[in-house]
Amino acid sequence: MPYKDFLTDLHTSTKRDYLKRMTEYPKAESITVAKRFDKDFWDGDRRFGYGGYRYDGRWRSVAENIAAYYGLKAGSRVLDVGCGKAFLLYELTQAVPGLDVAGIDISQYALDTAKEEIRDCLQVADANSLPFEDNSFDLVISLNTLHNLFCPDLYKALKEMERVSRKDKYLVVESYRNEQEKVNLMCWVLTGECFFAPHEWEWWMQLTGYTGDYSFIYFE
């Protein structure tokens, strides 16, 4: 399970006011709204989620680095578990013409407002029960999704990523290395259910037999 970081530069480019996120609005209400994963979460007020998640090309360099590292080529099959509006999948198709992509997400709104060019490659589904045959994909990715699951579903989702992959996997989840990062994480995150330190995440990977690459994002 090699540690491979493709996201830190993108993640740290956003400035966050953690205390404001916690105190400007009743946090429990923000969480309740966010967990519907509907328009309020994606394109509503910032206190409920992204505050407007629109395509702006920011995922292009991530896609190019992933494509190069995993040797993707025309005909390679890639699945994104928790694809959201599928901006990364779209960028992968631009980086590698002829790439065969698929994405799943629990948010119908996200898929309805995804990049039109690949919308027909997306479907509503749960990460804990992927609607694909064994060994279906050359690369299975899941970025900033699995920490939103309760432990029983997290276990199943990691097993599912392993099951549908015939080659490579890449996983990114939120984590913390010290008490300050833990506080920041809990202040900022609205939809998370798993708040684990790196060694705990690695324990989950070993427990489920996940053999892919992984990295963490931290709220410094």
Rank of each mutant, 00 (worst) to 15 (best):
P2F: 11
P2A: 15
Y3M: 10
K4W: 10
D5P: 09
T8M: 14
D9F: 07
L10C: 07
H11M: 11
T12D: 13
D17P: 01
L19C: 01
K20M: 08
T23W: 00
P26K: 08
E29G: 00
T32Y: 04
R36H: 11
R36W: 06
F37N: 14
D38W: 07
W42R: 14
R46P: 06
R47E: 05
R47K: 12
G49C: 07
G51T: 13
G52C: 12
R54D: 15
R58H: 14
R60Y: 01
R60M: 10
V62D: 01
N65G: 00
A74Y: 11
G75F: 06
R77K: 15
V78G: 01
V78E: 02
V78P: 00
V81I: 14
G82F: 04
L89A: 03
Y90W: 12
Y90G: 02
Y90E: 07
L92K: 07
T93Y: 08
G98V: 09
G98T: 08
L99R: 05
D100T: 06
Q108C: 13
A110V: 07
A114Q: 06
L122M: 04
A127T: 04
N128M: 08
E133P: 01
E133Y: 09
D134K: 09
V140M: 07
V140W: 05
I141N: 01
L143R: 08
N144D: 15
T145N: 12
L146S: 00
L149N: 06
P152M: 03
D153I: 00
D153Q: 15
L154Q: 10
K159D: 05
E162I: 12
R163H: 05
V164A: 04
R166E: 08
D168T: 02
K169N: 12
L171C: 15
V172Y: 12
V172P: 04
R177G: 03
Q180E: 06
K182G: 00
V183F: 02
L185V: 00
M186P: 00
M186G: 01
C187A: 00
C187V: 03
W188Y: 14
F195D: 07
A197F: 03
W203R: 09
L207P: 00
T208F: 05
T208L: 11
Y210R: 02
T211G: 13
T211K: 14
T211S: 14
D213K: 03
S215R: 06
F216Q: 05
F216V: 04
Y218R: 06
F219G: 02
